[in-house]
């Protein structure tokens, strides 16, 4: 049995279903991506999978245990979450924000232990933000902020890592950087990773499994080479694409086919 087993899950916000008929199984150490267009329910699904939504039915098992019977504290020991970048109301420093990841391992009134400091130092180094630790999070660039959020999730020290659109709001190169960090976490630390993403080409070299989500339902799931087909993309994104081989990775990648137009003029 996998580390995450989801059966017949549906979830919403009290007025109709946003996602339904969800069956997913993740093996320990697997890197999976949920892919779908805006509004397909990706964010809802990744939140429902960690028990963050109230209006949920179905079955989620983490490490064989029923997620809905666990306390928040117990769940936080198993799953860490990297949300989409949001503004912080108050001016916390990078170190303070990353230290919040240690909450689940600390006593209520305890400060940072030597072990906490050790973990924090390691994760700051791992995502290469050690030099920023005294800075206020509000003053960082999007790419830096995303890495700080990942560092906080890593400080939580959990077997599972969930991410909601880790490359959104990021420039091309930062998106790639984030996925390289995730790949290292998977291969070196044995983390099981589940991320939502809308940029298909970005995930193909890294994801071992792709889950296509369309209108709240899983349209198809499997290995990237099997999943990246013209039919699947057309089905899920309503876009006509060509599939070809990336010259460097030898993996498939998609390119959009512009619809013909007589007015369009191509300039050299």
């Amino acid at each position: 049995m996998g580390i995450l087993e989801v059966k017949n899950l549906r979830a919403g916000y009290g007025s109709g279903d946003v996602v339904r008929d969800i069956d997913i199984s993740l093996e320990k150490g697997e890197f999976a991506c949920i892919i779908g267009p805006n509004g397909s329910g990706k964010s809802t699904l990744i939140k429902a999978l960690q028990g963050l939504l109230k209006d949920v039915t179905g079955e989620i098992r983490v490490d064989g245990e029923d997620l809905f019977r666990l306390t928040r504290h117990e769940v936080a020991g198993k799953i860490a979450f990297v949300p989409q970048i949001a503004d912080l109301t108050f001016e916390f420093s990078v170190l303070e924000v990353v230290a919040m990841g240690r909450y689940v391992h600390q006593g209520r009134l305890a400060g940072l232990s030597a072990a906490d400091r050790h973990v924090i130092r390691d994760v700051l180094e791992m995502v290469e933000v050690s030099h920023l630790q005294e800075k206020k999070v509000a003053h960082l660039s999007g790419g830096e902020r995303q890495r700080v959020l990942i560092a906080r999730a890593l400080a939580q020290d959990t077997p599972l890592l969930f991410l909601d659109e880790p490359s959104s709001h990021l420039d091309l190169n930062y998106g790639l950087e984030v996925f390289e960090i995730l790949e290292r976490l998977q291969t070196e630390k044995g983390k099981t990773i589940l991320a939502t993403e809308h940029n298909i080409n970005l995930v193909i070299p890294y994801a071992r499994k792709i889950v296509f989500l369309k209108e709240g339902r899983i349209q198809a799931q499997g290995g990237p080479v099997a999943m990246i087909t013209r039919e699947n993309i057309k089905d899920v994104f309503k876009a006509d694409v060509d599939i070809r081989e990336n010259r460097h990775s030898k993996l498939p990648e998609i390119s959009l086919i512009p619809r013909p137009s007589e007015k369009r003029q191509i300039k050299e």
Partner: peptide, 12 residues
């Protein structure tokens, strides 16, 4: 301060 969902997911 990080938001309810984030606080929950950190174990609060």
């Amino acid at each position: 301060v990080l938001g309810d969902e984030m606080a929950q997911s950190l174990g609060s």
